[in-house]
Amino acid sequence: MRQIDLGYLMLSGLVFAIGAVGVLIRRNPLVLVMCVELMLNAVNLTFVTFGRAMNDMAGQVIVFFVLVIAAAEVVVGLGIIVAMKRRQPAATADDVSVLRG
């Protein structure tokens, strides 16, 4: 563990917080997807940092899996958004309430 590794951890914490705030304050569903990507990236950065601090290759392998998951998540999420926008062109994240789930 070196001084710069603490810098990486603080940076990823900051980016994760920014992504979380974005998810909470934005209403465009596509921007929400982008903010989730931001949070995933922050976690990826911690994985690589911890992997190097522990001198373990598994950190990078897990990041690879996170990338796979993120790609699949975006594909499915965009499919949902396209289907939703087709029925309700003006839908925002606030309109989740009409689902009455």
């Binding site: 951890l9 603080m10 914490g13 994760f16 992997g51 522990m54 001198n55 373990d56 290759m57 392998v61």
Partner: peptide, 23 residues
């Protein structure tokens, strides 16, 4: 996160190194 990294400092990473494979 800042408090964790500043207060715990370099001890923030604990555990057994090189469990899977060393870099």
């Amino acid at each position: 996160v800042f408090a964790l990294t500043q207060l715990v400092g370099f001890d923030v990473v604990t555990g057994t190194p090189e469990v899977t494979a060393a870099i």
